[in-house]
């Protein structure tokens, strides 16, 4: 008889006491860039107490096996805004399956009894068309997963928790 997984509970409003920001270890071999955005609720009000964690492969498409390289953690400010420096991950390969460059993201906040999981993809990336995960997303909603280029090496990607423009969240 398997054990029951410990249930999730919200991080609440005071997580910054215990969950401190972690900057991504930049890889000199990768294309340096920054991603900024806002976390918004169902009324499009800013979520000023959200925590975001990111996980990505190196420029070679390999995930770190025995360190925290590739992982970062940041919180939103009062205006719901966040920004982090990163580099474009390579294409992850598993067998004959090849994935488009992407960053996996976990979102925690007061009001979220469980965290949410989503992904950031890059615009102008032809491999998006063949990405097995993007292809599971109904076409009209795919744009919520693709960052928008707003300046050289600067991308905008918002997280809308609820409503018509809701970001796609995954069960994984």
């Amino acid at each position: 008889m398997p054990l029951t997984v410990t249930p999730s509970q919200t991080v609440g409003p005071f997580f910054s006491i215990g969950l401190h920001p972690v900057e991504l270890a930049l890889d000199p071999g990768g294309e340096q860039l920054a991603i900024q955005g806002r976390v918004l609720d169902g009324d499009h009000n800013p979520v000023g107490d959200a925590l975001i964690e990111t996980w990505q492969a190196g420029p070679d498409g390999q995930y770190s096996q025995n360190s925290s390289r590739g992982w970062s953690r940041l919180a939103t400010d009062d205006s719901g805004s966040f920004r982090f420096s990163t580099f474009k991950p390579g294409r992850v390969r598993a067998g004959n399956q090849l994935y488009a460059p992407h960053i996996v993201v976990a979102v925690f906040a007061r009001g979220l009894l469980r965290h949410l999981v989503t992904r950031i993809y890059f615009p102008d990336e032809p491999s998006n068309a063949d990405d097995p995960i993007l292809n599971l997303v109904p076409e009209p909603r795919r744009a919520t997963l693709i960052a928008r280029a707003v300046a050289p090496r600067l991308f905008q990607w918002n997280i809308v928790l609820q409503g018509r423009e809701e970001t796609v969240f995954f069960e994984c």
């Binding site: 979520v47 925290s68 992850v92 809701e166 969240f169 995954f170 994984c172």
Partner: peptide, 22 residues
């Protein structure tokens, strides 16, 4: 106002979810 209103999209496991920081 913070719970998603659309259903989550179930995805098969990929290397991105079965790996993680150590």
């Amino acid at each position: 106002k913070r719970a998603p209103s659309q259903s989550l999209i179930a995805i098969p496991p990929t290397l991105s979810e079965v790996s993680g920081p150590r």
